[in-house]
């Protein structure tokens, strides 16, 4: 008989921190705040994931990526469940995630409802082009200083 020790949930969280978001690969699924809980139910690992936007096509890819990553770590009994409530909010983006977004050229969400500065040149003379962008979670803005358009991760 082989006895195995289940990895701790803290260990699983560390592994999940290495799973990139498929649309914005510079941040991880934990940076994004969509992994809501990790728990062992008997010998089955249950991971609760919440969607960013209800129709976001990345949602099923994210579940697949999480499953692939955890199976690669040797977890055999795994269940990924969707949790709708409380609904995802950009307040759950980690501080590290915000920094990574900005370095990547996406302005992180701000309580004021618009970007604080241009992620390219740091300018603050900005204009909104559209409240909708290349993915459901982003809006399009432009910097009047450097004239570059950029993505803004909009508050929700």
């Amino acid at each position: 008989m082989v006895s195995t020790t289940l990895p701790s949930t803290a260990q699983v969280w560390d592994w999940l921190a290495e799973v990139p978001d498929p649309e914005i690969p510079v941040i991880s699924v934990t940076d994004l705040g969509i992994v809501r809980s990790v728990e062992w139910q008997g010998d089955t690992l249950v991971v609760h994931v919440t969607p960013t936007y209800s129709g976001c096509p990345a949602t099923s890819i994210i579940a697949l990526d999480i499953e692939t990553a955890l199976r690669a770590r040797g977890i055999e009994n795994l269940r990924i469940e969707r949790r709708l409530s409380p609904p995802w909010t950009t307040d759950w983006l980690s501080d590290e995630g915000r920094e990574k977004l900005e370095a990547y050229g996406i302005a992180p969400p701000q309580p004021a409802g618009g970007p604080a500065r241009c992620p390219h040149c740091g300018g603050t003379d900005l204009e909104r082009i559209s409240q909708f962008g290349s993915t459901p979670c982003k809006a399009q803005w432009r910097c009047r200083g450097c004239l570059e358009p950029f993505d803004y991760f909009k508050c929700i």
Partner: peptide, 13 residues
Amino acid sequence: IALANTALDLIGE
């Protein structure tokens, strides 16, 4: 883009 995003949200709902 805005129309496509709106449609996507509606399908999600």
